[in-house]
Design a protein around this nucleic acid. Structure first.
Lengths: 163, 163
DNA sequence: GCCCATTTGTTCGTATGTATA
DNA sequence: TTATACATACGAACAAATGGG
């Protein structure tokens, strides 16, 4: 029987317990962590404590809740820590995404996909817009935009110009 | 009079309001944000909503609470944005988006184009979701979204022409 | 030192709205 | 429609820390 002991908030103990289950694999990704009622009975606490513990795991990116279905494991603590990080990582991922988008038309050009080329182009424009906004977000937080991540060339005349 | 309107959770609205006050300097670092009772009277909500809003700011690292004294501003959103973990969501969605982009060329080679059209539609939906999260990221920083793109409709090109 | 009001943090119970099955 | 489940919201209570009398 899982039990909470005094000396530390109950919701933190429950969060640590569930976090350990996720890290050890007893709660694999995609598995439901159990409903609020089940966790209440398991740890012998009120609904408030259970929801607060689950909410903490949700903010950590470990679980995700779906109304009417349940709360499911989304990632392990290691995965979540790798995903987290700074805006720099986000910028790098976005740059990779843009590079792949620009590579698509060349691969699909040998086929009769010209109609879909416009769709791809639209996707590229949207990604380029996202990157532009990300650059602005950089300036607002006072961080320098990492190395020579250039603006998209073929999709527009957008120039990344930072102070 | 600060008032919460329906359509969005009250605790989120209050958190955004206080976050904006911190970002604008109306609540400088070291300043008390006001007791729970004061915020209850100011926003006309229950103690639960106030505590949940303050708790969110605390998890964001903007404020720090001292029992018996009060809750005080710890850092500005810009300062806290560097180590903000709220970007984890954005990074995860970018990973999913990139994974689907990698799957496109293979599908174009050994599959029909009909399924590829659905893939493109799904991609566009995810890019739209990404934009939404970027808007949220802006709000967390305390700055309004520069505007120019909202939800995607049709294939109409959106032109981002901001100063 | 002692009491007491204030304040945060935690916990309890309950109710409502919405989404899913 | 009914039942389940999460998210939000209401109110209340207690412990711990702070500060004033």
């Amino acid at each position: 029987m899982a039990v909470v002991v005094p000396g530390k908030p109950a919701y933190q103990q429950i969060a640590e317990s569930l976090r350990g289950d996720i890290a050890s694999g007893r709660l694999p990704v995609g598995q439901a962590v159990g409903s609020t009622a089940q966790l209440m009975d398991r740890f012998r606490v009120s609904s408030t404590v259970v929801r607060k513990a689950v909410e903490q795991l949700r903010t950590e990116g470990l679980v995700v809740g779906h109304p009417g279905k349940g709360v499911f494991v989304r990632a392990t603590p290691e995965e979540s820590a790798a995903e987290a990080a700074t805006i720099a990582d986000l910028a790098a991922k976005l740059d990779d995404l843009r590079a792949q988008l620009e590579a698509i038309p060349s691969k699909a050009s040998n086929d009769k996909l010209t109609s879909m080329g416009k769709e791809i182009a639209e996707l590229r424009r949207q990604v380029a817009t996202l990157q532009t906004h990300l650059v602005e977000l950089y300036s607002r937080v006072g961080q320098p935009y990492p190395h020579g991540l250039t603006a998209p060339e073929g999709t527009g005349e957008r120039r990344i110009r930072r102070a």
